[in-house]
Design a protein around this nucleic acid. Structure first.
Lengths: 152, 152
DNA sequence: CTTTCCAAGCAATATTATATCATACCGGCC
DNA sequence: GGCCGGTATGATATAATATTGCTTGGAAAG
């Protein structure tokens, strides 16, 4: 892991700590550790992949251990679940609810989160035209990313 | 099941038959039966719910039976999977690829499909700004439907 | 000090999905 | 007819994902 990446990770972790403190939520060592795993890998990880990594340092870890931590992290808007992959990634805009839009490259597997107001508004508008009150909008766009399309 | 609903279902089934014929795809009795189950219930059903129903008339049915049928129906764009629910619903615009946008009511569980060009375009645009080539866009909006919001 | 609350430990189990190999059926072709 | 290749289905097993319920321990609140 590069120095730069490590620095970014520390910043994200600090931010997470502040977010939780503000909410009165406890970012316990275990939860922090799980968040760390997600941040350091930088690719979507499934619950059981996380569990395997967690077990290396945390012997008694079992499925509920990881799912509880993930639930907590999702509640705090620190982590997103990618439904198509049953996998988890860090929130880019950590700490507050925001419409999630993901680009999933089906060639290299990279998932990147974008935040496009225009699209989010258009969707909200579309829902409201039906009398629907959106709470949580998830957009998962599968396709080919720029890097894979033009392999330079 | 009302006369009207049955008539609509027959129409959908006929349409499915035409779609498959055009593609040279075989809408076998088994696949037709599974599609029928999905059409008649009118609510999202999980694979195992479908399997239970299928077993009533089709003794040897096992998980692969239903998953194969579902894969086929999804390929033919006759059925969508709702990722958030691990459940399946009929395609409204059956028979051709189209951007799927779902409104999921978290109170009554009703899922309705909409087809909003403006929102779909906005999303496509957002993806392309990143150099991303979308292939398959899934939108799942969770919230409260009109009926639940104003219980009249 | 003790009550309360919540995180975590632990075991079991539920739910969702796939792998694999065998069999049956249908069409064309010799 | 007999064979061949392709596709659909049958059947069994198992993998992958997720939850339930109950218990324990420690820290914060009163």
């Amino acid at each position: 892991m590069s120095v730069k990446a490590r620095r970014r990770m520390t910043a994200q972790m600090d931010r997470a700590a502040r977010v939780c403190a503000r909410q009165g939520a406890q970012l316990t060592p275990l939860r922090r550790h799980v968040l760390g795993l997600i941040l350091e890998v930088g690719a979507p990880l499934t619950a059981y992949q996380l569990l395997d990594r967690l077990k290396l340092t945390h012997k008694g870890a079992a499925p509920p251990t990881i799912y509880r931590a993930l639930d907590f992290l999702m509640e705090q808007h620190l982590v997103h679940k990618i439904e198509r992959l049953n996998a988890f990634v860090p929130c880019v805009e950590a700490g507050h609810r925001h419409p999630a839009q993901f680009l999933i490259c089906c060639q290299c597997g990279v998932v990147s989160e974008i935040e496009n107001r225009a699209a989010a508004n258009a969707l909200e508008h579309a829902a409201e035209q039906e009398g629907f009150r959106p709470r949580n909008t998830v957009v998962e766009i599968e396709g080919v990313c720029a890097a894979c399309f033009r392999p330079s």
